[in-house]
Each structure stands twice: as C-alpha cells, then as structure tokens.
C-alpha cells in the first residue's frame, strides 16, 4: 500500500510518500502565493522520485494551513494531529512536541501518538519563523547564520518586544547603541526560546521532547531552547516533514 501526505505550510509545502509504512520519497517546496500549485509541485516531485503515477497511490491526506484547499486529497487533518502521528512513528517514547513553523508555533502534549493537549502562539508572529526572518533582516544576517552567530555571544542582549515590528525597532536601537551583532542575535533567539518555554511549561512538558518544523534546523535556537527547558531534544534528520509524514500515516489508519 502506498499513501501520500501533503503539508501545505505558510512558508514551505512538504510531501511524503509511504510504502508499507516506510518513507520512499519526500519533497520540500517553497509555498509562495499560489499554495495549490506548490502542493501539486511537491506531489509531482515525490511521484517522480519514486517512479510511480497518481493512480498507484491509495490515499492522499493533507494537513497544514492550506489543507482544505487541496482538492485532490481524500481528507484534511490538522497539523497538530499530523505532527503527533509523524513524531510517534519516529520516536514512540516522545510525549511532547515543539513545532516552530513559518506562521505559528505549537506545543503538543502527546501520549502514544494521541494528542492530549496543545497550545499555539497568539495571533501575531511572535515566536515564529517569521519573527526570525524579519529580525535577521534587520541585523543584515542570512537567517541560516543567525544560530551560529548567536552561539558566539557571551552576553546576549535583552530583547523584550513580543511584536515582530517592535522587535525590529528594538534591534535597530540596540545597534545604534553599539551592541555587537552576535549579542543581538543571541538576544533574539533567547526571546523566542523564553516564549516557547512558557508554553511548554504550561502543558507540563519536561522530558522526551521532539523539536520539529523548519526552525528546528536552526542550531542556535535549538541550543537556546534546550538550555531554557533543560532538555535534550529529539530532532528528526529532516524536521520539516513530520507533518506530511503524519498525514501519510493517517491514511494508513
């Protein structure tokens, strides 16, 4: 049996193909404005990689922000359930998941792959990939280098603004006061880490925690979060695809 999972996120669209429970292909594509064509592109990519056609697929399940608009999917599930299933498949012992995506961040408490409770960030971009993207731009640092830059800091700057726009102005005023780039980078990452840690503590997540989503690739954030929560995360080799993986697994039932 072959099933496909599609995760239509705000920044990237992910597709996973599963054959008899094993991942045989995956794809990550930028979402851009037209998220339906991004989903089609990711789907075509995994089919091409596996050398199969649409009719070979038994189920397609969708998740993510654009989940209800992907008409070729058999069913849509929330990314909270999808991440829980995907992470359970990789690490059955995990009982907490932190997912930081482009548009939102979530903390999920799980038991045997089932969601027990969850929290998401409020309506604004605080504590999300977008927050990092904007503030990295203010620092004139590529977002991928933000983490390693922050690791060089000895005295992180204190950034208190939750609002992305205000944080950007805070970065600018710190720069004008002569703060070092690495200290500002570290301050930004700590501010996100604190915010996520508060959500994790509200749910009582203390050990066996997985960190997924695009931001999990950022070593600096990962280190800061691990320090804040005093845990060592389970991070999948490809942390961006656990949602799509979970959707594909949901298809198997």
């Amino acid at each position: 049996m072959i099933s496909a999972g599609l995760d239509s996120g705000s920044a990237t669209t992910k597709a996973v193909l599963l054959k008899d429970g094993k991942c045989i292909a995956y794809s990550i594509q930028p979402t851009a404005f037209d998220f339906i064509s991004a989903a089609e592109k990711a789907y075509k990519d995994v089919l091409d990689q596996a050398g199969i056609v649409k009719s070979d697929i038994d189920h397609v399940y969708s998740t993510g922000y654009g989940r209800n608009s992907i008409k070729f999917a058999d069913k849509a599930i929330s990314e909270i359930t999808a991440h829980a299933l995907g992470v359970y498949h990789l690490y059955p012992e995990v009982n907490g998941i932190i997912d930081i995506g482009g548009q939102d961040s979530k903390v999920v408490s799980v038991y045997n792959g089932k969601v027990v409770d969850f929290l998401m960030n409020d309506k604004c971009a605080a504590g999300t990939g977008k927050f990092l993207e904007y503030t990295a731009r203010a620092l004139e640092v590529p977002i991928d280098d933000l983490g390693s830059l922050a690791l060089a800091s000895e005295k992180p700057a204190c950034i208190t603004s939750m609002c992305t726009v205000f944080a950007e102005s805070e970065v600018i005023s710190l720069r004008s006061r002569g703060s070092a780039k690495e200290d500002i980078a570290a301050g930004l990452i700590e501010s996100i880490a604190r915010r996520i840690a508060v959500m994790a503590l509200q749910l009582g997540i203390k050990q066996n925690v997985a960190f997924v989503g695009g931001v999990a690739k950022n070593t600096g954030i990962r280190a800061a979060l691990e320090k804040e929560l005093q845990v060592s995360f389970y991070v999948p080799p490809e942390p961006q695809i656990t949602g799509a993986l979970g959707a594909a697994l949901y298809g198997i039932g």
Binding site: I77, E79, I80, K114, V115, M120
Partner: peptide, 17 residues
C-alpha cells in the same frame, strides 16, 4: 474575522483529539 483560520485550526485539532 482576522483569526478565523487560526481558530479553525485549533478547533479542528480539538475535535480530532
């Protein structure tokens, strides 16, 4: 109505739960 989608996602996940 700016948060209809975000609330929808939370409610979806809650129903699945």
């Amino acid at each position: 109505n700016s948060d209809v989608e975000q609330i929808g996602l939370r409610v979806d996940a809650f129903m699945e739960m």
